[in-house]
Structure formats: structure tokens, C-alpha cells
Write a protein that binds this DNA or RNA. Sequence first.
DNA 1: CTGAAAGCGCTTACAG
DNA 2: CTGAAAGCGCTTACAG
Lengths: 352, 352
Amino acid sequence: MPLTPQSRNTTMTATRAKGRVTLADVARLAGVSPITVSRALRGERAVDAELVARAKEAAQRLGYVPDPAARALASRHSSHVGVLVPMLSNALFVDVLEAVQRSLRPEGFQTLIGITHYDAQEEEQLLEEQLQHRPVGLLVTGLQQSNRARLLIERSGVPCIHMMELIPPTEPSQQRYSVGFSQEDAAAGMTQHLLSRGHTRIAFAGAQLDARTLQRSVGWKRAMTQAGLPTTALEWLNPAASTLALGGQIFEQILAQSPRPQAIFFGNDDLAQGALLTALRLGLRVPHDIAIAGFNDLVGSAQMLPPLTTVRTPRSAIGETASRMLLALLRGEHLPQTRMDLGFEIVIREST
Amino acid sequence: MPLTPQSRNTTMTATRAKGRVTLADVARLAGVSPITVSRALRGERAVDAELVARAKEAAQRLGYVPDPAARALASRHSSHVGVLVPMLSNALFVDVLEAVQRSLRPEGFQTLIGITHYDAQEEEQLLEEQLQHRPVGLLVTGLQQSNRARLLIERSGVPCIHMMELIPPTEPSQQRYSVGFSQEDAAAGMTQHLLSRGHTRIAFAGAQLDARTLQRSVGWKRAMTQAGLPTTALEWLNPAASTLALGGQIFEQILAQSPRPQAIFFGNDDLAQGALLTALRLGLRVPHDIAIAGFNDLVGSAQMLPPLTTVRTPRSAIGETASRMLLALLRGEHLPQTRMDLGFEIVIREST
DNA sequence: CTGAAAGCGCTTACAG
DNA sequence: CTGAAAGCGCTTACAG
């Protein structure tokens, strides 16, 4: 007779069929009621220390593992946290995700990762799917959710932390949390650095044209205007995805313009890296012939030729802080700050 | 009186409290039993066409959404698929993940992503966590799981597809599925290309030293040996993570050796890219002074100076095929092939 | 501080 | 082809 899962059960008497060790099994062994075991294992207070010890030992002995589905059904919420990021090919978000998982996993939460591809429709769809799983929390990128998405979040009652951007201090802070930095200030800061080098014709080139890239262009424009400089014909916006190859193309387009800008500030490092490589190919000397700056300090930027001046953004800290805020919220704590500005750093290397 | 979730319920009469629309609500509206609605909605056969229509309409009208937790509890399996990848900072796996999600989401499956950091212990841990969620399937990277991990998978009875590497044809194909290509053959192929260029001192440089990198070194060695060439003092293995910066360092180390190799085959593109940039900095002409080849055809390799010769690996196809195999398995289909060789392509650009 | 009862929202056998 | 019963494995009120 083959040893099927069924036949195996015949050898087990006290424990239930199906193989799985349940709370009832643990309770029986510990000599207490299942509810007490449940409370003991979850560390709920108001359980006698000795019973806790007995329950834990019994659970250990039987190799008991709580069933997340049963738990979710009974408690009306799962151990999932939904995370929405635009795209993993942007290394930025890989760092955010890493930090989120590193913070959430030890606390027993599973991350549900949704990739929106910078598409509000898809984000809405993903949100809907994630919400079906009754997550305990939501970590979303940016503030530009569609109206329906916003409504879905609100009505779900699930706490939501927005990452990367900051909710304007003017907004009445009602349940909306954000962790990030001012994209606009960071871009203005980089522009000021370029201005301090004596450049006056500073171009801004952005791709993808997501909200954050646009905010960076606003920061650039602000710094230019404050310096009394024109920005006309210096802004290069391309809706295509941000890549090395596109950076090279945009760079060549800009070079064809006359008068040629003295510096180009790219809205993301991959564009700047592509420009740097193209400059090398064309025999242009950076920064002597033209200065190049990037944004985000992505992998490879320090290895470029010359090494790229860029803005270092705190994405790991953002992922970690967002997770910590969520965790605090789940413990029922009140957050002293609903808006966490983690700042940025201008990293001056040799390309400017 | 404030409108709390509780008080809101008083306005609803027919439907249940708690707000959530349940199967029972749909059944009531459709005038059939809940089981019939359940079967109709899941597309289970053996339900009268008219009742199916009525059930679906009622579900639609009420905005019914099945509860995954209840479903999982009753059916003993969730809608989750566990996916294990080593690291997202290796762009390779971002492509795999993209493809997996693109294939699985439309079928109603949620992806549980675990990042192992190339650590067998962590993989084991992640596996254990994922298995608690009773996934319907597992997609894991490579074949080198720890014994305990292997046991966990086996005993769970959850179908598992291994990605990237191929299970040796000699292994009795019992329940183990694999999709990938021969890392060894691919490396041997690249080495042959280098040999065809007339090089005889061809070095191999690998980092991270995961199983696949090591298989590539074996392929390189095989091709060299077959060509009657020595490999002594030509193999450079570094356990550190594979990065542009490390590639540059290894490159300089190799250059210090004499006689200097005529070509270097890097086990991953990021290393090769770092070498290329360092060559540029040192004023070495590639491939004239030294030829450089990579592996994987990662983003940026085509933009390098000179563009990098490399092996294009079918990671999107791997993710997609693995998903499709899993889907077929879940439908109870028998897979004609338990081992899918998706091949590779030697992409010759200007660096060799 | 502890427990008996009820129920979370589905699906799985089992009848008919 | 359809349904009444039972149960999946927990936790939430509610008592004591």
C-alpha cells in the first residue's frame, strides 16, 4: 500500500487529520484552551506567565505554524503590506524595496509588490487587487494617484504612506502620511551648484515625465529665474522611458542647438551616464567643453568618466522610515510627524 | 451622532453587516444557493448556463469581490505564487520578475517576492515564510537549495519550477521542473568566439561566485582545454558582489599580471562595464590593447565605449515560460517537457 | 486572567 | 446539474 497523505494520517491519533498542526492541537498538549494559546502566542497581554510558557513550549514541540488565511479571515486583516513602485528597472526603487522588506519581514509582514509602470490606470488596478487581500498597510510611490485610487485607499481604511514626495505642509494632515524630500529644492540646489561654476546657459533634460521629474524641472527653473537667467529653449522634456540610450540621444540633440548650453542637468542619472558616454565617443571633454550633472546617484555614476556630479537621494532611508511609520501606526501609536523630510545631498564629482 | 462604520450598517437591511458583500448576498439576489454562485463565478463546469448568467449579474450588481482569505482557508491553498530571486540590483532578475508578474497577474495570482541575497540560509527562511501562506506554486532561482529547503519544497507538495539553470538530463525527472539554458555552454561559446579572434591567453573573471558564475568558469575552462590552451593563473574569482567598481579593480589587477592576457571574459556585464570604463581612464584601447567580453547583455552594455560583446540571456522568456509551466501544472496538465532549454545568443559588438 | 460560543466567508465532499 | 451540511483554523466579542 502506498504511503499517501491520507494513509499517513491513520498513524496519528490525537492530532487532527490533514497533517497540519492546529491551535487545537497545541491547546490539547498545553492543557489550556485554544484562545489562551492564541493570545499567548501573539504576545497579547493579560495571560498568565506560566500559561504563556506552556503554550509556547507546546507550540514549539509540535512545530505549530499559524495559518495566515485563518488568521486573516477571523481578524479581518492579513499580514500583507502592499507596496506600489513605478518600475524596478529604475534602480532607485530597488533600493526602496530592499529597505522596505528588510524592515517589514522581521515583524512578520509579507510584502505585496505592485509595479505600476508609471501608469495611473495600472496603479489603480494593482491597488484594487492588493486591497482584496486586506493588507494592513499600503506604501505607495508619489502623491499622484487617480481619484478612484485615492477613494479606494480612503474607503479601505488601510493606513497609507506616500514615498519619495512630501505632502505640502498646507494640506490639512488628515490620515495622509509622506516620507521623502523636496524634489524641487534638490533640483534647485543642483542648479545653484552649476550657477556657482559660472555657467549661465544651463539646460534641463528630463525623461519619463513622471511627477518627480517635473518637480525637478520646476526647481531648475526656479533657481534660474532667481538668478535672473532665462530658461527659454533650455528645457528638454521627453516622455520616453529614462535610459542610457535616450540620454545619449537627448545629449546629441542639445549639442546641435546653438548657442550650445554650458551645462546640462539631467533629471535622472541614467540619462546623464548616457550623455557622458556619448561625450566620450564624440571626443568632447567634460566638464571643459560642457558640464553634466545628474540626479539620484545611481550605481555606476561614480565610475563614469569623468565621475558624475549628482544628487544623492535617501531612498533606502525612505523605504525604512516609511516602514517604521507604518509599523508604529499598526501598533496604534500616534505619529508625531505625518511628513518626514529626509533631505538630499549634492555630490560634486568631476563632471561639473 | 457620528457616522461610524457601525452606525452605517443600520441603513443596510438585506445585506449583512460589516459592509462586505459576501457570496450569500449574491446568492440571495440571484435566487440560488451560495455554492452555485461559487461554482458559477469560478467557472467550474456543471452549472446551468442561465444560473451562471444570473449569478454573474448579481455579483456585478453588488460589486462582489471574493475574499482570498476565506477562499484559501476553505480550499487549503491561496492565490499566491512564491518567487525567489537572489538580488534585484542584478538587473537580470528584474527582468525575470517583470515577466513573471506579467504572466501571473492576469490569471489572478499574487506574486510573493523573496530576495535571498545569494544566501542559502536566507533562502530557506524565505521559503518557510512563503510556504506558510500555502502558495499554489514556487518559482525559484537555480538548483542549489539547501537540503532543508529542498525538503520543505518536497513535503509541501507545491509545484516548483527552477529558473536560470537546467536540471541535468541524467536526473530522473521526478516533479522537478527547470527553465533556463546551459550557463556552461554559453560561456564556452563566448570563449570560442574569443579564440576565433586569435587570442590564446584568455582570462576569466567572476564575482559573487554563485553557482551560475562558477558554471561559466567551467565552460570557459572547457573551451580553453579543448583548444589545447592552459588556464593556469588566468582565472580570477572574487567572492564580493558583482559591480562596476569591482570590475574596474579586477581589471587593474589582471593588467598588473605579466604576461598580460589578450582578452578577459567577465562573468557578468557589470564587471565588464567597469573594466571598459577603467580601460578608458587608463588610455587603453579596447579591443586593440586588450579584448573584453561580458555576460548577460545588461542595460548599458550596448552604450559602452566600445560597445560590449556579451552573451544575451533569455531572462524574460525564462520568467514567462516558468509561469506558463506553473499555470499548466495548476490546471492539472501534464508537462511534455520538465526541462526547457531556452538557449542564449553571443552578441558580438566592438569590444572583442 | 481564562474560556465557551459564535463566526469570519468561502469550498469540499456528500447527497439527491 | 443543484444544494444542505460541515468545516477550513483562527480571533472577536462576551461572560465569568
